[in-house]
Nucleic acid binder design. Sequence first.
DNA 1: CGCCAGATTGACT
DNA 2: GTCAATCTGGCGG
Length: 181
Amino acid sequence: MDPESVAQRLLGKLLVRIYQGARLSGYIVETEAYFGTEDPASRARKGGNLAKIMAGDVGIALIYGVHRQWLFNVVAHEPERIGAVLIRAIEPVEGIGIMKKLRGTSDLKKLTNGPGRLTKALAIDKSFHGKPVCKQSSLLRIEEGVKIHKVLIGRSYRIGVSKDLSKPFRFYIKNNPYVSR
DNA sequence: CGCCAGATTGACT
DNA sequence: GTCAATCTGGCGG
């Protein structure tokens, strides 16, 4: 399936991290789709390891490091193509106390409302790079969540990229307080 | 191994 | 709103 469709379908799903035996989780409320050579904002555009992973098996975690943060993506694309979905924000559900400790803040609204923030709150680092997120046994996985009605899904251009495509590829749940700024 | 751009965040005016 | 710290990844030498 193409990244654009997957990005929308991931909204409302539960992102689960098993951390020291405890469940940390949150509903995915904001995503962005990234492509291959035709996407000026994608690092896969220039080839390299990231492009290889983005062209490989779907449902694999891709951890991308930038600005001293880890950004969490899931590989998703059609056969013979390149693509991934960036998870930009989640709504905290389980293990909120532990997440606050990992993030070093008690402000619930700012706990996971950004790509770098949610990886810190869930203790996601490069050790998850290349690991599957669709397996029940995985320490980092995506489970069924709540169903999001189509009319509640907003769409905009991607955030923070210097050169975007001519079509908006950011998706978020409208009126949800946990989407990024 | 050095160089440089960048999918961010948090502090400060 | 503005600004700079800080490090990963790709590439050239």
